[in-house]
Simulated scan of single mutants.
Amino acid sequence: MTPVLRTTQGVTLIGGGAVTADDAAVALARAPVVMAADGGAAKALALGLTPRAVAGDMDSLPDAARTAIPPDRLHRIAEQDSTDFEKCLTRVAAPFVIGIGFAGDRTDHLLAALNVLVRVRVPPCLLLAGADVILAAPPRLALDLAPGTRLSLFPMGRVTGASRGLRWPLDGLALDSAGRVGTSNEAAGPVVLELTGPCLVILPRAHLDAALAGLGLGGGGLGRGGLSAP
């Protein structure tokens, strides 16, 4: 698909769900280019941010937001077979995306976003969702985590693999969304995951930089285990 936004920097993608100033500050410190999914443009403007691009079916974009954003930045994608999150993620060319505003009161919206995370792998996307950061596990993921760090694995299908550095290892286990899952595990130190199958990795959001570094995207400059205050 033809990108509506090209950049060599990380992109903060804003959805129409709940977005706090802290969410935006954490994301923008690492991904300074702003894009919005449909009605997320109103959330961006309320934070004093003008998106470089807005994409979606435009059924939830308020008139005031439409007027405030230059017309050449608005990209209506009429098809209804995908969510606005997927429409954006498949039309941005960037090293990575941090999504905010995709977790809130609508559980169905969050579930749909998680489905997209494991299906659309380019560009890599990490979601800030409440107290967590969520990403789709690549075949191999190394995370520099302090002992005791919560690490949950939620399979979105059948998942097998091996691990090093987890309190409860994965070796020899099969995870499945309708069977055994891997929530509330813990790091015993740095972790290496080698997984086959679609799986979400869920960490405390303070470990966003460790997740970025594990994906080979830099972002590890704050050191092990934490974000600085925005």
Rank of each mutant, 00 (worst) to 15 (best):
L111Q: 11
L111S: 06
A112D: 09
A113T: 12
L114T: 01
L114V: 00
L114W: 11
L114M: 15
L114E: 04
N115K: 11
V116A: 11
V116R: 12
L117H: 06
V118A: 08
V118I: 14
V118N: 06
V118P: 02
V118R: 03
R121S: 12
R121V: 10
R121N: 04
V122R: 15
P123F: 07
P123M: 10
P124Q: 08
P124E: 02
C125D: 00
C125R: 03
C125E: 04
L128N: 03
A129G: 09
G130K: 11
A131G: 07
A131W: 00
D132K: 08
V133C: 14
V133E: 00
I134D: 02
L135C: 10
L135W: 01
P138K: 14
P138A: 13
P139H: 14
P139R: 11
P139M: 13
P139D: 10
R140Q: 15
R140I: 04
L141P: 01
A142I: 07
A142N: 05
A142E: 08
L143D: 05
L143N: 07
L143I: 12
D144M: 03
D144Q: 14
D144P: 03
A146G: 06
P147V: 05
P147A: 14
G148E: 11
T149C: 10
T149S: 10
T149A: 12
R150D: 10
R150G: 05
R150F: 00
L153T: 04
F154A: 09
F154H: 14
P155C: 13
M156T: 05
M156C: 14
G157S: 10
G157A: 12
G157W: 09
R158Q: 12
T160F: 01
G161I: 08
G161D: 03
A162M: 05
A162W: 07
A162E: 15
A162H: 09
R164I: 07
G165D: 01
G165I: 01
G165T: 06
L166E: 06
R167M: 09
W168K: 00
P169M: 09
P169A: 11
P169Q: 12
L170E: 02
D171E: 14
D171Y: 01
D171H: 01
D171R: 02
